[in-house]
Amino acid sequence: MTSPTQPAPAPSRVCFQLRVKPDLLDEYLRRHSPVWPEMLAEIAAAGRRNYSLFLGEGGQLIGYYETDDDAAARAYLAASPIAARWEAEMSRFFVGLEGRPDQAAAPLTEVFNLHDQLTESTPS
């Protein structure tokens, strides 16, 4: 817990990239409209928020979410039977992916964040 004089730590921003098989794009989109309610609840219970997926040319998929503890969120979902079932169904959609999509997608390195730089450049 933080004291009134200590600000809460900034959430981690996590971005990842996967590639959806072009011949399965339509089905992939149908599966996300909507996502199972119990899977949505597990994502939230894991501590992920502001979670979005963006689809680009050729099946390029970019995911983004924020969390206070990404290792804990990943561990929670890794142990979740609901997430395991969802990911087992979703794994066939991705090119060159071994294992569960949520666990196998490597985070991208953040190189710029407007809010952080504005905050750092503002005198106290």
Score class of each variant (00 low, 15 high):
T5E: 07
T5M: 03
Q6P: 03
Q6C: 10
Q6G: 10
P7L: 14
A8N: 13
P9F: 06
S12W: 00
C15S: 14
L18I: 06
V20I: 10
V20D: 03
K21N: 08
K21A: 14
D23S: 11
D23W: 00
L24Y: 04
D26F: 07
E27T: 13
L29N: 12
R31H: 08
R31D: 09
R31V: 11
S33N: 12
S33H: 06
P34N: 06
P34K: 05
P34F: 04
E38V: 15
E38N: 15
E38D: 15
L40D: 11
E42H: 03
I43N: 03
I43Q: 06
A44K: 13
A44Y: 02
A44C: 09
A46V: 04
N50I: 02
Y51E: 05
G56H: 03
G56D: 04
E57A: 15
Q60C: 08
Q60N: 10
Q60H: 04
I62Y: 09
I62V: 15
G63E: 01
Y64N: 03
T67S: 04
T67R: 02
T67N: 01
T67P: 00
D68S: 05
D69A: 02
D70A: 14
D70M: 07
D70V: 13
A71I: 07
A72T: 09
A73L: 02
R74Y: 05
A75L: 11
A75W: 03
L77M: 13
A78N: 08
A79W: 05
A79D: 13
S80N: 10
S80C: 12
I82P: 05
A83W: 00
A83T: 04
R85G: 14
R85W: 03
R85K: 15
W86P: 09
A88P: 00
A88V: 05
E89I: 10
E89C: 12
S91Y: 00
F93I: 04
F94H: 10
F94N: 11
F94L: 12
F94V: 12
V95D: 04
G99L: 01
R100K: 07
R100S: 12
R100N: 05
P101S: 04
A104K: 01
A104H: 01
A104Y: 00
A105R: 09
A106N: 08
A106Q: 12
P107V: 11
L108Y: 04
T109A: 15
E110K: 13
E110H: 07
V111W: 08
V111K: 14
F112T: 02
F112L: 12
L114R: 10
H115Y: 05
H115E: 14
D116S: 13
Q117N: 13
T119K: 15
T119G: 15
E120F: 08
T122P: 01
T122K: 09
